[in-house]
Design a protein around this nucleic acid. Structure first.
Lengths: 234, 234
DNA sequence: AAGTGGTCTAGACCACACA
DNA sequence: GTGTGGTCTAGACCACTTG
């Protein structure tokens, strides 16, 4: 069995949600269980996934409803390319630097390395529909990308990492407003004094091992960040 | 029974995580089930909550481990006051405007009202340790805050909303970098040309009804946004 | 009163990590 | 191989919304 049953049902229901439209009432958990030949617990597992993703909401005693889809459902870990495509833009890239350097103290701390350990560095101007969108510097522990020659310029860093078993499942991000320096502004074709969004990101695999750190500077006139936050229990 | 069993176990385990420290191995699900007299399904429910909150991570075949707590676990829906206290700062407030106005077209759309419907408007300079942190404009449908006289300046908008049964459980946020106008900069004691973070937020209750819309302008030199993102399935 | 989602149990088998 | 978490079942009762 390739995918678990609850996962297949989740995708099935995702399609059903699109057809039904916002605030439509979904079939009851018991009916779904019977219709798909599953136990109610499995149905609930699928619905929980949809609820977590913001696709449905549940009201006790009333039923499960399709969430009115406004903006992005929830902030997810994506590569620049995925992000741009989701916004309907064509991603591109101009490599400025591709080399290997010692991590240094600050970076070593974020990547759980020693300061002398080598990291692969990749500096790129990221394009959207051929126009500069952001300036991005990515670092990956060199020990986890064996065989990568200096000067290699992978089409997709995420694809390359994936081939080497580096699978980020989570990332911590810090977002700030900033003014780019003269050099940065020039690379981004920004007028002087225009603001930018700076994003620091450290990505982790399923074992909570750091696999990548990226610092990005986005043009504020072309980019914003959209996400959903939930109320939490103490 | 005030709280469900999985919720009480979750809190119990949260304390255990703090004692054990990062990357410590937690007891197995079966052992927890036996120790607390619960079924394994209930234990898994508690652990799933902790995993979702970023407090633990699970590795199939290996066990469940305490997550290395670095930055904030995940972005949650908080009031300004809660946010500041979480950062170790004392929240304050200076009310600039407290009145009732027609929603207007754009706001009506966000709050699912008609443009002529009245909304309570509250404009405040928000302080942290008595220094300006952000300029915040909040709108709440007046029909859902009956009895609020004009000119009332509630200590906490969230407390007031809570008393009237307005319980936000989710919010959609858009974050941008921006340059404040002259008037805004003056209210925030910012030098001209300094950047700021602008946050648009619409909050919803459990039935996905909009209950509040807020637009905030934060000083970039005193504020950033920290959160965790997860890899998602298609 | 009827029907909904919310919680909980006691089992079973599978997939994976580690020694 | 042994033990872990991952999936799944078939039931039961509770809390809540709605008519």
């Amino acid at each position: 069995m390739a995918l678990p049953k609850y996962e297949r049902l989740r995708r099935e229901l995702l399609g059903m949600c699109e057809e039904l439209g916002p605030r439509a009432l979904l079939p009851t958990e018991r009916e779904l269980a019977e219709r798909f030949g599953l136990s109610r617990a499995t149905v609930r597992s699928a619905l929980s996934g949809l609820e977590q993703a913001g696709a449905v909401y549940r009201v006790q005693g009333a039923g499960t409803f399709v969430a009115p889809s406004t903006i992005s459902k929830s902030l997810s870990l994506t590569s620049f390319s995925e992000d741009m495509r989701a916004r309907g833009l064509r991603p591109g890239s101009r490599v400025l630097v591709a080399d290997e350097v010692p991590a240094g103290r600050a970076l070593a701390e974020h990547l759980r390395l020693r300061p002398a350990d080598p990291v692969v560095r990749l500096v790129r101007v990221r394009l959207a529909d051929d126009r500069p969108m952001c300036l991005e510097t990515a670092y990956v522990p060199a020990a986890r990308l064996p065989g990568l020659a200096r000067g290699d310029t992978p089409a997709s860093l995420y694809d390359l990492m994936h081939e080497h078993g580096l699978r980020p499942v989570r990332a911590e991000q810090v977002v700030e407003a900033a003014l780019p320096g003269d050099e940065e502004a020039a690379l981004l074709s920004m007028p002087p004094g225009a603001p930018a969004l700076r994003i620091h990101r450290t990505a982790f695999d399923q074992r909570e091992r750091p696999v990548e750190r990226t610092i990005s500077m986005y043009r504020a006139d072309r980019y914003d960040i959209r996400f959903t936050v939930q109320r939490e229990l103490p």
